[in-house]
Design a protein around this nucleic acid. Structure first.
Lengths: 120, 120
DNA sequence: AACGATACATGGATCATCAAGGTATCTAAC
DNA sequence: GTTAGATACCTTGATGATCCATGTATCGTT
């Protein structure tokens, strides 16, 4: 990996927030169809308008764990340029986990927004 | 601590989500004025409509860390019933940290909601 | 030849909650 | 009087997470 990519920059997101959002974020991205690690990194950067940046060293273990837990399923493929890629797709189990994650997230978010609106 | 209180129940929130939200949640609650551990636990339960439940064994270390880092300041007090309480208030540093946490949270939330709306 | 982007992976340090336990006071029920 | 529940604080060991640094490799452009 090129060490000068913005992937290695100063984190704008706390590591706890990354930990909490990585699973629902990856699962959500995969509801749009198959994807692979490097593309997921770019998707996150794009969708957040550059406000969320993940390191690749963080994402790959996440993908391995999600696969180990049966929430996503991977298959190896080769591009025309000869690069190997591991494509992941969402499993039914992953879809159910995403629904639970979304509910938990929204419960916490609603509480925080309530507090923030209260204090302006 | 009474072991039969709902505080010890099955967590509805993943530990990662707790980790990500505990600091902004505590700091936000303290924008409403001084509070103490036990009351903060009840506030979280109340504000979330019972959807977020923290264990006290998780909260006290959080409060100690926030105090150690200068984001909150504590003082001991005694109630008329003779119970000791440690009241915490938000410091200026804590207020600045909360502003940063809120921004990060909203960046991640906006990204997730974008994905969720996209997929219905 | 060098650089940057693409594409994957690992390992040690650090730091977090969780689970389970502890101390103590007060009130209400039986 | 003693049991139970609520109030109020705290600590420790096990587990598990990202972070940081590093490694491998291909391809296109300068």
């Amino acid at each position: 990996m090129n060490r000068k990519t913005p992937t290695r920059g100063q984190p704008r997101t706390s590591k706890e927030l990354v930990a909490a959002s990585s699973r629902p974020m990856v699962l959500s991205i995969l509801t749009g169809g198959e994807s692979y690690g490097y593309e997921i990194l770019k998707q996150v950067r794009l969708l957040s308008g550059g406000r969320v940046e993940w390191s690749d060293g963080m994402l790959y273990p996440v993908l391995h764990r999600l696969e180990r837990d049966g929430l996503i399923a991977g298959r190896w493929a080769l591009t025309e340029q000869g690069r190997r890629r591991k494509y992941y797709r969402l499993t039914d189990r992953g879809r159910r986990q995403l629904a639970r994650d979304r509910e938990s997230w929204r419960a916490v978010h609603a509480t925080l927004e309530l507090l923030w609106r209260r204090a302006q």
